[in-house]
């Protein structure tokens, strides 16, 4: 059973307009690698050219920020939810 990845509105154009994608993987890094392999246009929005996760996009495993649970090495279980949460500033 795969992990569900929530795609936020601003990034949906880069993920085939889907709001969620099912991806297999044992760690956060593996899931994101498979996600961006399937949707290469997403990659530059999540990673720097050097392959580091961008600092204005937060990744959550369920309700926990991956920065506090081992980043991309954090293990995932089937049925977990991975959320991409980019900074947004709109308000007017």
């Amino acid at each position: 059973m795969p992990v569900t990845v929530h795609i936020p509105t601003p990034l949906r154009p880069f993920a085939g307009k889907q709001d969620q994608v099912s991806v297999e993987g044992a760690s956060v890094g593996e899931v994101l690698a498979r996600l961006t392999a399937g949707h290469p246009a997403l990659r530059p929005h999540l990673y720097t050219p050097e392959g580091r996760l961008r600092s204005f996009v937060n990744i959550y495993l369920n309700d926990e920020d991956i920065r506090y649970i081992g980043r991309e090495a954090a293990p995932v279980k089937p049925g977990d939810t991975l959320s991409i949460v980019p900074a947004v500033a709109g308000g007017r």
Partner: peptide, 10 residues
């Protein structure tokens, strides 16, 4: 968010 996204991205 320690840093903002680059202008134009969002």
């Amino acid at each position: 968010y320690p840093e903002p996204p680059p202008p134009g991205l969002v």
